[in-house]
Simulated assay, not measured.
Amino acid sequence: MNFEHLQKQVAFIHEIDKVKYIQRKTRLFNSDRNENDAEHSWHLAMMAIILAQHANEPIDTLKVVKMLLIHDVVEIDAGDVFLYDTAISHTNTEAERKAAERIFGLLPPEQAEELIAVWEEFEAGETAEAKFARAMDRLEPLLQNVSNNGGTWQEHNVKYDQVVQKKSVIEHGSKTLWDFAKTLIDDSVEKGILKK
């Protein structure tokens, strides 16, 4: 048994526990409590398993689950950026790249390379798996905001056009889920929980 290999894996497992302490802006369904990144990642992974049949193209669901479980690990170092933040871009940053290299670099080289490649694939958003994973990442907060009568939309004065622009990524992974999401967005305007 190669204990050095195992020690690296355990060091990574220990490090990613920090994901549980990263607070997101969105709140749990029907709740005043903010979600943390670990809860978010778990929920997205479950959503991908349940909703995989709605993907635009055939997908490797296990790969999607991997993407969703690791996509926010970089926030241990880089922090969480609110999707509607106008001062900081929500796209891949140099800080996230350095975080990926440091955190996944705790693993034995072969595993580190695999997880960095999976993370990069998610960030690029070009494969069927990445498109579907990104659809899950955009759908969950929408569902949370609807369940919380506007939630962070209301709190941060987010408008209809901003939501449509940011959430339209869902369509690249699932036209069906985008149609559903668009209905929820439009209904939110009618209910007065999202402003035009």
Rank of each mutant, 00 (worst) to 15 (best):
K98L: 15
I49R: 15
V65P: 06
H14W: 00
A181Y: 08
H172F: 08
T26F: 13
Y160Q: 12
S31K: 11
V118S: 04
E39C: 06
D77W: 02
L177Y: 01
I13E: 00
E110V: 03
V158R: 07
H54R: 07
E96G: 14
N149E: 13
R97K: 15
K18T: 04
A55C: 12
A78S: 15
Q165W: 03
L194D: 05
I193V: 15
V73L: 08
T176R: 13
Y160D: 09
D161C: 09
A38C: 08
R97M: 14
P108K: 03
D187L: 11
D179V: 04
E121I: 05
N30A: 04
E123M: 11
D179A: 13
R24K: 11
K25L: 00
K196H: 12
H71V: 00
V164R: 07
H40R: 05
K66A: 01
Y21D: 13
E123G: 01
T61F: 06
G192T: 10
H14G: 00
T93D: 00
T91M: 09
E4K: 12
V10L: 15
M1V: 11
V64Y: 08
E140Y: 09
A87S: 15
S89G: 14
E15T: 14
D137Q: 08
K167I: 02
L6R: 07
G105M: 07
H71Y: 00
L83G: 05
E121Y: 07
A95W: 01
H156P: 00
S168K: 15
A78F: 06
D161T: 14
F29Q: 08
D77Q: 07
N30M: 03
F104Q: 06
Q162L: 05
H71D: 01
P141Y: 00
N148S: 11
H5K: 15
G150E: 11
A52T: 11
S41K: 03
S188P: 03
H5S: 12
L142M: 14
F104G: 05
Q165K: 13
L107F: 06
P141S: 00
E96P: 04
N157A: 15
I22G: 05
L177V: 00
S147Q: 07
V169C: 13
A78P: 07
L68R: 01
E121A: 13
S31G: 12
S89F: 08
M47K: 10
E120S: 10
S188C: 07
I103F: 04
V189A: 09
Q9M: 13
E190A: 12
H14L: 01
